[in-house]
Design a protein around this nucleic acid. Structure first.
Ligand code: FES
Ligand code: FES
Lengths: 150, 150
DNA sequence: AATATTTAAGACAAGTATGTCTTAAATATA
DNA sequence: TATATTTAAGACATACTTGTCTTAAATATT
């Protein structure tokens, strides 16, 4: 699996928030209901995004979470790294320590190129573009596809 | 993590076997010692490769495992799919069911391209080429790098 | 000030991947 | 045939990820 489940949940929630033009706070309860993700689990994941200032959170009535900056200033890579870390882009594909330093593994060259492709894909696409794409194409970020873009 | 630990162990063992020109049986004990991988765990992983006829195994004294065909006829993808399955190349990157059918997710297009890159990298490289590369460049398939190509 | 709402934090449970150990089956050699 | 060696198979243990639940802290509203 390329991305952990936590990471996928974080991405889906971030896309939801990015579709919210005016950046109002959205409660995690609402997010978890719309996206069909366990409330408490989603809460913990979003806390990670809040911790690295990708999200802002507000407690109390009418509270919730929102993007900390415009959706076109947050790349998919930002979210992925915040949750899964950058091991995918740093570590040897064969799990050997010190990827690329001194003796690399036989797969190093081909893997370095490919992980560059993955990184570029995540880095050149931002939350707003993806949310727009989802809205315009009536695409889905839930299993049932019953999610309504706002 | 792109590949599971089982998959990585299977790949490293396969590269070792591919470096064995004459395709003699190598005992799993020897493999596990050379590659510094738990013997019993490696045994189970190699059983998976034997089950799909990538390896042949022989019990008893002088027994062990060997590639079932020349190393240039087994791609990295063959080994990866045998152990990790082809979920990586089939499933939605956001974990939604039925990737690409009817309503795709907003990341589908960019992900389809990238997973094609990954697949191509694994498909266009075979065990023999990688083993040759390892031998000629004195590269490593163990953590310490103390492995000696034969 | 009191109350309801919402995120924060952490304990705990369940599930999956990884790793260890024991016994069975097959095979070469004496 | 008897023995040693080696893979096969499966039980069991450990670690990590995922998911649930409870309590605390903050905040808007009355
Ligand atoms: S050393 Fe293995 S991928 Fe870099
Ligand atoms: S539908 Fe999400 S990657 Fe294909």
């Amino acid at each position: 699996m390329l991305l952990s489940k936590s990471c996928v949940y974080g991405l889906r929630a971030s896309l939801f928030l990015a579709s919210n033009q005016n950046s109002e706070y959205v409660s995690i309860k609402e997010l978890s209901k719309q996206l069909d993700i366990s409330f408490h689990f989603l809460t913990k994941i979003l806390q990670q995004l809040t911790a690295v200032d990708l999200l802002k959170s507000l407690k109390g009535p009418n509270g919730g979470v929102r993007l900390s900056k415009p959706g076109d200033e947050i790349t998919l890579l930002d979210v992925v790294v915040a949750i899964d870390g950058d091991d995918l882009f740093q570590e040897c594909v064969l799990g050997l320590p010190g990827c690329g330093r001194e003796k690399p593994c036989p797969l190093h060259n081909i893997w370095a190129a490919t992980r560059g492709d993955i990184r570029e894909m995540l880095e050149t696409n931002n939350l707003l573009d993806m949310a727009k794409k989802g809205k315009e194409g009536n695409l889905r970020i839930t299993a049932k596809g019953d999610f309504e873009w706002v």
